[in-house]
Each structure stands twice: as C-alpha cells, then as structure tokens.
Design a protein around this nucleic acid. Structure first.
Lengths: 215, 215
DNA sequence: CGGCATCCTCTTTGATACTG
DNA sequence: CAGTATCAAAGAGGATGCCG
C-alpha cells in the first residue's frame, strides 16, 4: 500500500480511499446497501474482477467494509460498509456536487445505472413543504426505473416502481439529470424530449431554482 | 486520459481529479494561493518532478489551473486555481474531516508543512463570539510558524508570525493537530507536552467541544 | 451461478539525472 | 527556476480458469 507520507488529513484520507475505483466501490455500497460481489460488479461497469477483489480486501483491512457470509438459504457473501465507510458520504456528496458540471451529454460509450440518480436527487432536491403530504416521483431512463420518495422533509431514492407516482419523468438519463440538478427548467427539459406526466406542483415543491443560462 | 466511462457525477469528478497527487496539488494551491513550481514541489514532499509537471498540464487542460507568466522583476511562472478549481474546496474539506481519524501519531518518515494546519483550523475552529475582538493564535511546530487569525466570525490561517499573538501553541504537529480538532482538551494536550502560553479564554472561544474518549 | 485467482500485456508511477 | 529524459518497478486492464 503506497502512501503519500504526509502528516496531513487530506493525504491520509487519500492514502485509504485515493486508489482508482475505491471511492466508486464505496458509492455502490452507499447507494445499494449490502451487496453481493456480482451486484457490485454490475454496478461498476468497467472494473476488472481481480481489481474488485483486491479493493474489497483492502477496504476490509482498512475497516471500511465488512464481509458477511449469509447463511443458507441465501448462501452468498454480502459486503457492507462499516460506520467509518458510511461516514464517507459527505465526500461523495461533495464530489457529486462538483462533478455535475461534467454531466452534460454522456460521452460515447458511457454506461448508466438508474440507482446513480440517488446521490444527485438527495443533493439537489429539497422539500419546500416538509409538512405536506408525502409524494413519489418515478424516473424512467435506460434500464430499471427508480423512485424518489419524499416524506417528512427527507428525500430517498430506490430502484423499482411506485404504485401511483405523483409524477413520472421519462427520457434520457441526461434529460432527467439536468432536471433534477436544476440545470434545465421543467419547460426546457420538456422541450428537449423529457416526458413529464402528473402534478407539476410536486416538481415545483422539490426542484432547485434553475441556474441562469440555458443549455 | 483514462476515464471510468460511467454517466455518474462522482465518476466524472474522479475522471478529472481522481489521479494520484491531483487533489494534493489542488490542496497546495488552495492553501498557498498562486504558487511557483518550486513552491508546489516543496509543499508536496514525495512527488516526482515529472509527475508534477504532467499533472499541472492536465489540470490546466481541464480548466482547474491557470498558468501565468509573471513579468520581470519577478520573472517566474505562477500557477493558480481557476474558479472551477477553487470550487473543489468542499471536497477537500470533506476529505479532511474524514481523514482526521488517521491523524494520530505520524507514521515513520511522514513529512509535515505548517500551512497544512489551515484546513483543519478553518474546519474545526468556530468563533463562538463573532462580535468579540479579533484574536490571533501562533502555532509553532516543526518548520515555519503559522498564525490563525480570527475576526468577524471568520477563521484564516497563514504562514508567518504574529507581532503579539493572544495565544501561542508550541509542540509537535500531532499535539497541535489533536488540540485544533478537539481530539484532546487543552489540559490533556498540555499534559502530553504541548506548551500553551497566553489567554486560555481565547482557546475556549474557538476550540470544538472535545470528543468523548481521550488518547 | 457466485467469488474469486492466474497469467499476460500495457500504462502509470517513482527515482534519478540532466538542461535551457 | 522550471522543467525534460530515461528507465525500472508497480499497478491497471483483459482474458480465462477454477472451485464449491
């Protein structure tokens, strides 16, 4: 394990989570909760299997990940974050917030997974009416649908469908992302192909004030 | 430039700043302001010079760093962060906050620079009496002294000495770090060799509530 | 299938030396 | 001062094999 050899908090943090893929593995475990090896691999398109195994071992040694042998009938290994691992969430949030500037059009060949909407959703959506009735928004992009559930002022996202969502957003990951992050207004997004059905007031309650310039 | 190929804000951020040394270079430019190549190298003990040159080029191409040829009489190149670069501060803050858990004893051979106190200082010190008189605290560890300046509720740190500091902390980087982050109370730190001179009330005004367990 | 380990190639890094 | 050049070592990526 190569370290920076600097007595600095940032350098020490990067000694532990600065290796390639490491923070993305933490992202998966944060967003998905306890995961099987195969779940991790499919949530991390592009990772080499030996690298995933290596990193999981390192994360375990560092005390960020705990490995649990689920008993039969499950009979599989589950990987989950420890407290120290969960406490990386502010780091992921900050990176997510800084990285949205690059979330314009996907690059050629970019992969996408619906649960990746979770971080931007909780980072950018805020309930302006925390006492109001709970609402759900279904997101339909490539792959599986996702649901944003808002209640009591908290915003949570999970994979799956809602029985009767208040709003459905259907379109490319890019269009949905731009709407969630406030990069496009609802009208602008609709004009670019985002299908919006349901109650517009729910979106007005949650979406951030859109930024100045369009695009 | 190797990318993760994932349409996710975190992955896109790491595509840009995820390489080894990159975030530490940003740290230096954030803490030190515009820097000469040599200043950067001495603030990044352990970096290979070709790697520093490579990274600076990449950071410039990515629009995080601007290179400026200072005219004579200075006649040197200055590297400074652009707005996009400066906006990485929340990422550095989050990493710093998460990394303090590893700031126990320095590892064998760890290097230290006094300006590295800046991040923990602004992260952990808070002025409980923002209307009170401005105060300064001088930190004397290895290398050059540093000064924490508190006024109008803001906490700033710079290299150098204060003419008449309200408090002087003198000791190992570890002892000072533990005190600033609230890992040790003033009394505990003093018992472990930290020399504290000046007005104790100033520290009480600024230091965080110390955590439960000692060490 | 789930959870890796091995083998091989290619790229990145680190250390050192040298230059305008 | 601000890098470039060189080279060995480490790490990443990809394919495939193995074992319960």
């Amino acid at each position: 394990m190569r370290t920076y050899g600097q007595y600095c908090s940032v350098a020490k943090a990067l000694d532990v989570v600065g290796d390639r893929w490491t923070l993305l593995i933490v992202r998966e475990l944060l967003l998905q909760g306890p995961c099987r090896y195969t779940d991790l691999k499919s949530g991390l398109p592009g990772i080499a299997t030996n690298l995933l195994a290596d990193r999981l071992r390192e994360l375990e040694r560092a005390g960020l990940v705990r490995r649990e042998e689920a008993p039969p009938p499950i009979a599989t290994t589950l990987f989950q974050l420890t407290d120290a691992g969960n406490e990386l969430e502010p780091v992921l949030d900050a990176l997510c917030g800084w990285g949205v500037r690059y979330m314009t059009a996907p690059d050629e060949g970019d992969q996408f997974r619906s649960h990746w909407f979770s971080l931007p959703a909780s980072l950018f959506l805020h309930d302006r009416d925390p006492g109001g009735a709970p609402v759900t928004i279904e997101l339909q992009a490539a792959g599986r649908p996702a649901v944003i559930e808002v209640s009591g002022g908290s915003v949570r996202t999970r994979l799956g469908s809602a029985p009767a969502p208040d709003v459905v957003l259907r379109g490319t990951p890019q269009a949905i992302m731009a709407t969630l992050t406030g990069h496009l207004t609802v009208d602008q997004a609709a004009a670019r192909g985002l299908e919006i059905t349901g109650d517009p007031a729910v979106l007005a309650r949650l979406l951030p004030e859109p930024a100045a310039g369009p695009s």
